[in-house]
């Protein structure tokens, strides 16, 4: 057994144990650790955000790039939401970010998420798997046709679509379980290995 002497490993072990203790009962130790980690995470976001502002706005401004004044003003306008009288001004930079995000995703979604995915359905129907892929995709899409009454052929197709989605959700649930188990294995490897030095 070779126990760690590192400060950050000890701190991490105490945080880990504190948070795990919540599973058995909510307690003071857990709540302190939780507050500590939320505060540190929020501080980290500020530090990294400032890094971007410094590199992309302040330094270029110092080098004579006056155009960056515009995004700096837009960025500062975000904070008007904390002032009763001026809070509506913050909607301009919010609109800018939303419009930019919408434009970027729209131009990408049509190609990558709609056309490419439909193209991938153009498979020869010479195997059961290929038939299932095509039928399943269209059955799921028919489930979301809420403008059409779900009876007759559409109703049957929508039911089939729901079954396909159940298989999807099952696979997603199974994968999520695997993920959470992996994470807990990671935490135990840290506690038993990095901290206590029991694992080799």
């Amino acid at each position: 057994m070779n126990m760690s002497t590192s400060v950050s490993v000890w701190l991490a072990a105490l945080v880990t144990i504190g948070l795990i203790s919540f599973v058995f009962k909510e307690n003071f130790y857990y709540r302190i650790v939780e507050s500590l980690y939320v505060g540190v995470s929020a501080g980290h976001a500020i530090v990294l955000g400032w890094g971007n502002i410094r590199n992309l706005a302040i330094r270029p401004l110092g080098e004579g790039n006056v155009a960056v004044i515009i995004p700096i003003i837009l960025g500062l306008m975000l904070f008007t939401r904390y002032f009763e009288k001026w809070h509506r001004v913050s909607r301009i930079p919010t609109g800018f970010l939303m419009g930019l995000g919408a434009g970027l995703s729209m131009r990408g979604i049509v190609g990558s998420q709609i056309i490419e995915q439909i193209k991938a359905c153009y498979v020869s129907l010479n195997s059961i798997n290929n038939i299932l892929i095509v039928v399943g995709t269209f059955a799921v899409l028919s489930y979301f046709f809420f403008t059409v009454e779900h009876d007759g052929f559409v109703g049957k197709s929508a039911t089939l679509g729901r079954w396909f989605m159940m298989l999807c959700f099952g696979a997603a649930y199974g994968s999520t379980v695997t993920g959470r188990i992996s994470l807990f294995v990671g935490r135990l490897q840290f506690l038993l290995g990095d901290w206590l030095g029991i694992l080799q």
């Binding site: 997603a172 994968s175 999520t176 695997t178 993920g179 959470r180 992996s182």
Partner: peptide
């Protein structure tokens, strides 16, 4: 990727 996104 995390296992939880494999199906997605």
């Amino acid at each position: 990727v995390i296992a939880g996104l494999v199906a997605d």
